[in-house]
């Protein structure tokens, strides 16, 4: 344990890390102080914002209000940033269709350009986290061993040890992560959609987020032991032990006990 912590301390200079984290997440503080709106990281063109506003008025304003300040049926979007829009709209969760225990992913309603225009408009309402760059979410640049350690502590209790998903209370659930794109994984951590807590860059640094993405990208693919049986653990193993194992063996027993014709 001691060696481990020492190694982790050393591996990244904490100061550099902290600086980096502060730089990248200045925007999120806007949640605490929405009035001090700094400019979002990447400056979108004015026409993008205009088109985004039109899309917003047509598709989102019913719930989130014409100015994005929220209504009884939808939260305020001031300060949520382009990352939240990219995640919510890019996974099809928004526009929401029905009211269930939680809003689920479904086929995406907009193309990439429209999503970024919507994002530009929402980001213009109040600074928030921006969409991560390709580099920030590149699994090949992450350290999956560190990602696993972080995933185990911060994510596995809801999403299962390898991201197969799990139950929350009252019909809500933490979804399976294997089909989620690295960008959306990053944005989910950054913005904390629905039940999920926020993992701001002061909590999990951008590098740590990338490590987690590297770990997830290695899961749900090939299980060294054969069929992964859903990676659900002992319950599915027990079920298959009965169905396949006891099933085959009782079949064999019936064959042995039967008289030959």
């Amino acid at each position: 344990m001691k060696a481990l912590a020492a190694r982790r301390h050393d591996r990244r200079a904490p100061i550099v890390l902290l600086l980096l984290a502060l730089l990248l997440t200045g925007g999120l503080y806007a949640v605490l102080a929405p009035t001090s709106a700094d400019a979002a990281a990447a400056a979108p063109s004015a026409s993008d914002i205009q088109t985004g506003e039109k899309l917003f008025q047509a598709n989102c304003a019913t719930c989130h209000g014409p100015s994005g300040a929220g209504t009884a049926s939808g939260p305020s979007l001031i300060g949520v940033g382009a990352a939240a829009v990219n995640f919510q709209v890019g996974t099809g969760r928004m526009p929401a269709q029905q009211n269930g225990p939680q809003i689920e992913a479904k086929p995406v309603q907009f193309d990439d350009e429209q999503i970024s225009q919507l994002g530009a408009f929402v980001a213009s309402l109040g600074a928030g986290p921006a969409v991560p760059t390709e580099d920030q979410v590149d699994p090949s640049k992450g350290n999956s061993a560190n990602g696993m350690a972080l995933f185990r502590t911060n994510c596995a209790m809801c999403h299962n040890a390898v991201g197969a998903g799990g139950a929350l209370s009252r019909g809500k659930f933490a979804p399976k992560l294997w089909e989620t794109s690295p960008t959306h994984l990053y944005e989910a951590m950054l913005t904390g959609p629905q039940s999920m807590p926020v993992f701001s860059d002061t909590n999990l640094s951008p590098d740590e987020k990338r490590d987690i993405i590297a770990f997830i990208s290695e899961q749900g693919d090939v299980a060294p032991g054969g069929l992964d049986l859903g990676s659900l653990g002992a319950v599915s193993e027990g079920l298959w032990a009965w169905i396949v194992g006891i099933g085959l063996l009782i079949g064999a027993a019936v064959w042995i006990g039967a008289k030959s014709s």
Partner: peptide, 23 residues
Amino acid sequence: TMSINAVWNYGPYDPSPVSAGAQ
């Protein structure tokens, strides 16, 4: 043919983490 108790998915014991579907 069937994977069972893939411990490398769970990681070494540590009293803090836990995973969904702990049975």
